[in-house]
């Protein structure tokens, strides 16, 4: 099975607004998800500066991309929920 890719933005805006917590994702991931995802840290993925994203972008940091799809105001729980939906 193809693994889901979780790309965590480590740019400073995301990091400051709560993304630092996501560094613990690997450690806090529930067992059922451990083998089905691949976690990557990425330099700023630019969503905070992207006017096309809609809403006042920087205000919705931190951002995570899951298989390319953007999750805003990301928390560990939000990422886990999203992955569970994908995996259902």
């Amino acid at each position: 099975m193809k693994k889901h890719t979780v790309n965590i933005c480590t740019g400073t805006t995301c990091f400051v607004m709560g993304g630092s917590e996501l560094l613990l994702l690997d450690e806090l991931l529930p067992d059922d998800l451990k083998d089905v995802i691949e976690i990557k840290g990425s330099p700023c993925i630019g969503i905070c500066k992207n006017a096309d994203y809609g809403k006042a972008q920087a205000d919705h940091a931190p951002f995570v991309q899951i298989d390319g799809e953007v999750v805003d105001e990301a928390s560990i729980q939000k990422v886990v929920d999203h992955l569970r939906r994908l995996n259902a």
Partner: peptide, 16 residues
């Protein structure tokens, strides 16, 4: 937190 806010407000990416 204030340092972080300063970086965000100025659009500075510490990693770069």
């Amino acid at each position: 937190e204030e340092l972080g806010a300063l970086f965000v407000a100025r659009g500075i990416d510490v990693t770069k």
